[in-house]
Amino acid sequence: MPHVTYISPDGTETTLEARVGDSVMETAVKNGVKGIVAECGGSCACATCHVYVDAAFIDKFDEMGPLEDDMLDGTAAERLPVSRLSCQLKMREDLDGLRINIAPEQY
């Protein structure tokens, strides 16, 4: 199973094993990692799962759809080129070692 490391705004790191097919959001929430709120449970309807993907991994994900793109324009924390909604990022074997910075604000 691929490992993913979450880095909280305060620098705390949490490394978890992810189930292939679960999203980066689900992996965090189901394990109780704080900071990814995910109010809508992954329906791309709330923008409270905003993360900054480590630059080394950003190109490994599919391009975002127009909905996610719009949502990211309305996030609470600043949108950066590596911004994504973590509910739209599915875990795969080849993403082992993935590093995810959690956005400092979700509301």
């Binding site: 189930r19 097919g21 679960d22 689900e26 929430v29 189901k30 394990n31 109780g32 809508c40 449970g41 329906s43």
Partner: peptide, 30 residues
């Protein structure tokens, strides 16, 4: 979570495990 039941889960785009709100171990740890 119930919302996917009539949406992605019914459509076959999400499996049962993905509906879980927390992993079993989370409850143990807490």
């Amino acid at each position: 979570q119930r919302p996917p039941l009539s949406k992605a889960y019914l459509a076959g785009e999400a499996d049962e495990e993905s509906l879980e709100l927390r992993l079993p171990q989370f409850y143990v740890d807490n």
